[in-house]
Amino acid sequence: MRPIRADSWEGGGVLEKAIVVTDLYKHYGAVKAVDGISLEILQGEVFTLLGPNGAGKTTTVEILEGLKEPDSGELVVLGQKSKKISRAMKDRMGVVLQQNTFMERITVKETFNLFASFFSQSLPVKDIIAKVALEEKTTALVETLSGGQKQRLAIGLALLNNPSIIFLDEPTTGLDPQARRNIWELIEELKEEQKTIILTTHYMEEAEKLSDYIYIMDHGQIIARGTPEELVAGLDQDNVIEFTLDPAMGVKDLDELGQIFPEYNLQDNQVNIYVRDMTDAFSRLLTWSREKDFSLENLMFRRPNLEDVFLDLTGKGLRD
């Protein structure tokens, strides 16, 4: 378990644990969706769970949201110990699911009122509507909202009970850049309010921008964890050389490239080479490509990011 980062909170005190999961298992026959994971989520942090499709992150999140029951394992949520998420725990959680569909032919306000009745206490609906900037849509039927507005509605519903923990399962998937930026701003605001946020996302930029701490899952297990900086530092490579694959390059040529640069990968048509000494590496790459008469289209030098960490650990892209 990682140490509690006492200095990471402005209040200066020791951060409480919002959720502690120990030895969580969920198997579907031979499929080990969640295979003995343990994790700790601190109050007031944005905790991100990354993993390729089928890694088990959705099952993990669904167990934490109380939508699925684990086979075994222990959960401690806001100090309450349990085998599964109880109704009392759900009363202090807000959830934005990956796909948010709402009952049709009811208005935004009616949707809020309906959800308000599910919780033991709720914030004034008017305030929440203002917070997610849906004032002009109060009396609009839900099905007439745009994608971004629907997502803001979903987030508003998750805030209705003034939750301590908020789950955001791919909150910006399918949104245009402006709508995505609006949602990010909203998440930043929630972070400032010391809400604990559990985020899953396919967007590397989103994870880097928002996350305080990241767990990476694959095959039902946790394979890495750390702050975004720690994870990138863990790659032990300072630079990335990126270029588009020349159609003339064959498997043999790539093998040869791999001998020169052991740390390289190929994603779609893009070659990423991870190096420490950029000058030396670049001159070797240039020599090789000149000898072979290959072009280096869209050549770029950059710092490694979470996508690289992800590729390094799982061999797959975040969106795969």
């Binding site: 939508l67 109704r87 959830v95 796909q99 959800f115 599910f118 519903l157």
Partner: peptide
Amino acid sequence: VPRDRGILRRFFATPLQ
């Protein structure tokens, strides 16, 4: 219909029974 469209799923992520 609400079950298949995931509407009930969202409901049951609250204390609703």
